[in-house]
Amino acid sequence: MPDPRSYMIEERLRSAKRILVVSSGKGGVGKSLVASLVASVLAREGKRVGLLDLDFTSPSTHVVLGAGDARLTEDRGIVPAHVQGLEYVSIVSYSHDDPLPLRGADISNALIELLAVTRWPDVDYLIIDMPPGTGDAMLDLVRLLKRVEFIIVTTPSPLAFETVKKVVTLLSEMKVPIAGMIENMKVKGSRFIEEQAVILRVPYWGALPYDTQIEDSLGSVSKLLRTSFGKELREMVLLRLR
């Protein structure tokens, strides 16, 4: 018998006009920071925005946003918390400070459960922060949601890009649209990533600087948006998404 939860997912996400998935092959490239601030910039432009953290084993958007244990409520399902002008859902609301060791099948089950029972209000954008890699979470998301677009985050390093390239190839083979590629933590003028994006036929959205102010600004969206990273990201979002 089919899984009843899978039947509800498209229906549950019908209230989201556009679903943008922030992903990368590599960990530590700044996905959560980018996802949180893309969502925050759009919200501050007057858009209705949801942010879903699907990095179950290492969630961190709550740290970026200063969300603490954002409280999810219940109304015929899970209703997102209101955090920094966003409709916000993270597993942290349930796992709190405890480690959550999940294997592949558990990740699939948790993802399907959350997507099936979360009742998103009408939003212009739903931003999804993904775990690194091409594992169960990404494969399930692509299988279950038919109208997602990906934003790929990489660093300038060929070490990171080696894996990022595989994510792009995989998504292209599955005919999943990639809205753009963001180069994060840029410290020098190399055009390596930009040239690779052209080769891969992915829109290159631009570079975000390596910014030493970021660490001190975590937990405050206003402060983060005042950093050089935040300002560059804002320009990028307004140009590409508004």
Binding site: Y94, S95, L100, P101, N109
Partner: peptide, 11 residues
């Protein structure tokens, strides 16, 4: 928490 997302049992 487990009621909403059973995998949270692992925590």
């Amino acid at each position: 928490s487990i009621h909403f997302v059973p995998e949270v049992a692992h925590a």
